[in-house]
Write a protein that binds this DNA or RNA. Structure first.
Length: 229
DNA sequence: GCGACAG
DNA sequence: ATCTTGTCGC
């Protein structure tokens, strides 16, 4: 694999355009007994990132364990190129998993990206893993505000009206979340599965718990490695 | 030129 | 993303 730490943004753009053709948006019909959430944490101004993947049963959303790993990252945060900062560390955490989930939920967008290559799609292609992107803010596309009631959602599209995902009200009277397929799944499927991952909070359990885990890891509350719960 | 801009 | 206290509303 290429060393992302030595890439320039123009070079990263070329890589995204090449990987774009390998992303497969199709209905997911495989088993659905385990889902996992992936996220990254870091101290401001530091080049050390703390990556984590939390494994959980589906649809109970009971966590069964988590993989935590630390890594040095030099590629800067540039909107549209998040994958070049976080994917390498996430792949290390992924390799450390004793079992792989049926679906992986990544904190960020899937195909709802300028070149259809958000972090969820990027990771999905490299790991050859069905993935869903779940973001807290829009990066690309247009949409109408969904109803204020939990469960309401509207399509997120490009200017040609091609649907890239959905804007979902995961909790009543709270800002919506942006869902889009990453790889080996489609828009309806990613939206349906993500809705089942919501358990009373604005953010779906996979990324919510992954976020908590990487922060505890960063602050030294929990150790690096795989931990069974 | 101006506004937008995942984490 | 991270830092960080109080405050508003269900």
């Amino acid at each position: 694999m290429i060393n992302y730490n030595e890439l320039t943004v123009p070079q990263a753009t070329i890589i995204q355009k090449e990987l774009k053709d390998t992303v497969k948006i199709t209905p997911y019909n495989g088993p659905l007994n385990y889902v996992a959430g992936a996220d990254i944490s870091f101290n401001k101004f530091s080049t050390t990132v703390y990556a984590g993947i939390v494994m959980m049963e589906f649809p109970s959303m009971k966590p069964v364990g988590y993989s935590l790993v630390k890594k040095e990252v030099l590629f800067p945060y540039v909107p549209g190129f998040l994958a070049f900062r976080e994917v390498p560390a996430l792949l290390d955490a992924w390799a450390q998993l004793p079992l792989k989930p049926d679906i992986l939920v990544v904190d960020g967008h899937g195909i709802a990206h300028p070149r259809r290559m958000g972090i969820a799609s990027h990771f999905g292609v490299l790991a050859q893993q069905p993935s869903i992107g779940s973001a807290k803010k829009k990066l690309f596309g247009m949409y109408e505000e969904p109803g204020m009631e939990k469960g309401s959602y509207t399509p997120l599209t490009d200017k040609q009206r091609q649907q890239l995902g959905n804007v979902l009200r995961s909790k009543s009277n709270v800002k919506p979340v942006f869902v889009s397929p990453g790889h080996l799944i489609d828009v309806p499927g990613s939206t349906e599965i993500l809705m089942q991952c919501i358990k009373g909070y604005r953010l779906p359990e996979p990324t919510r718990l992954a976020h908590n885990a990487v922060n505890q890891f960063r602050t030294g509350i929990v150790p690096e490695g795989w931990t069974s719960l």
